[in-house]
Design a protein around this nucleic acid. Structure first.
Lengths: 223, 223
DNA sequence: TCACCGATATGAGAAATCTCACACTAGGAG
DNA sequence: CTCCTAGTGTGAGATTTCTCATATCGGTGA
């Protein structure tokens, strides 16, 4: 995390993402603009973050360490959205890890001095409710749609979601779990993507070579 | 919907389900206890309910009419929980149909006189947030777990969830969609359940004949 | 009455996906 | 240096699930 001391950029991000409208009291003076490079961790698992983040640029993924120590990607966040609001509202709920897929900018508020104020701010709470409601609805429809699509279609959508500058390099074992398919089958599908020329293997991972084809495959899953 | 004028029963349900703790102001005096018989509709699709319900007894299912006119089961509610809170908080969100699987009792509040008060009540909003957060987390883990289970396992869980007094009678076409499997395959699995003696066919539907076996099949999906 | 439609039902072959078995590699721990 | 583990990669056969074709049944509107 790097602090960006650029007030005009902060203003611009705030305006674009309707940040101030999320609260009934002025917050901008207490807000810092922070930057997370691709692949860094915004929120560490089981270590409550002292900050409430509002993601304004960049995609992030949510992951989850299981009892057996394995980690599993469980979701994605796209801006604008709050990060760390669950732990604020319900301190009993576990903190999941949030990592940057690409370079990310967040507006950050230190929770401690304003936690009580936030928890009693109907404007803030209402926005969180609406956000959670939408997420719930889209989870539902998403889950409903996911069933009935082949692994190839879902993998194509997943690659487009996690890719950064044409580079794809997620761990196969994790992806197989996320997509709910066996490791073996994932490799079959990837081998097929290589054969079809959708992807090209590189020393560090894969490079997208036919983005249009992936879009075509994934297009039914799009929001 | 039938109004139940039984104050002591209302008190008991309220206490059991921590109803009054959901608000910062007294609500019990304005609350009615209402009853919905099995298979009746609590909330009609796209017709905003004038009431906010708090389900205290009985299971309900959420369904959803698609563009093509088909209806699709998309989820379940188990008490205690609010029904119709989404439309209250976000009037732009569509109202989905909620139907009683078995006899249901709800505490009902007429929205109109207290809507503003509710939307400014941090206690109420916080409870809704926590509820939605939990739902979100359990959706996630549920969806993650669902993948990787066979249709037979998920059907067993589904039957136990929707059964009423040992009777199962959902439409195959809808169930196939809910489970994300083809109609054809659903019939194969049901035929297999009949052959194994888990279910028995009746004129109106099916009767559960070996509940233990269904539990055994479903047990990994349980919450 | 008849034609039509949606739900129920069944068969056969194809596609998607799984399980298991095995091999290779890189990195950390002793 | 060697063992151990996790991730990667491949093959073969089994199982799950799909698609398509076809038939019956009850209701509904012309």
């Amino acid at each position: 995390m790097r602090l960006i001391q650029n007030d005009s950029l902060k203003q611009r991000f705030s305006a674009e993402s309707h940040f101030e409208e999320q609260f009934s009291f002025p917050v901008l003076a207490n807000t810092r603009l922070v930057f997370f490079p691709a692949n860094s961790t915004l929120i560490h698992e089981n270590a409550a973050s002292p900050d409430l983040f509002y993601l304004v640029r960049g995609r992030t993924k949510l992951s989850h360490t299981l009892a057996n120590g394995k980690t599993l990607i469980t979701g994605f966040f796209t801006p604008p959205c709050f990060l760390g609001e669950m732990e604020l509202i319900d301190p009993t709920s576990p903190a999941f890890a949030v990592q940057a897929i690409e370079d990310c900018w967040c507006l950050a508020l230190t929770k401690a001095p304003i936690a009580t104020q936030l928890l009693n701010d109907p404007v803030f709470l209402r926005h969180i409710c609406i956000y959670l409601t939408h997420k719930d609805v889209s989870n539902l429809t998403q889950a409903a749609r996911n069933q009935g699509f082949t692994a190839a279609q879902r993998l194509a959508a997943f690659i487009l979601l996690t890719e950064n500058h044409g580079q794809y390099h997620e761990q196969h074992t994790q992806v197989a779990q996320y997509l709910g398919i066996s490791y073996r089958h994932l490799l079959y599908v990837i081998a097929d993507f290589l054969r079809q020329g959708y992807l090209v293997k590189t020393p560090t991972g894969y490079r997208i070579h036919d983005r249009a084809a992936l879009h075509r495959l994934a297009h039914d899953l799009a929001d």
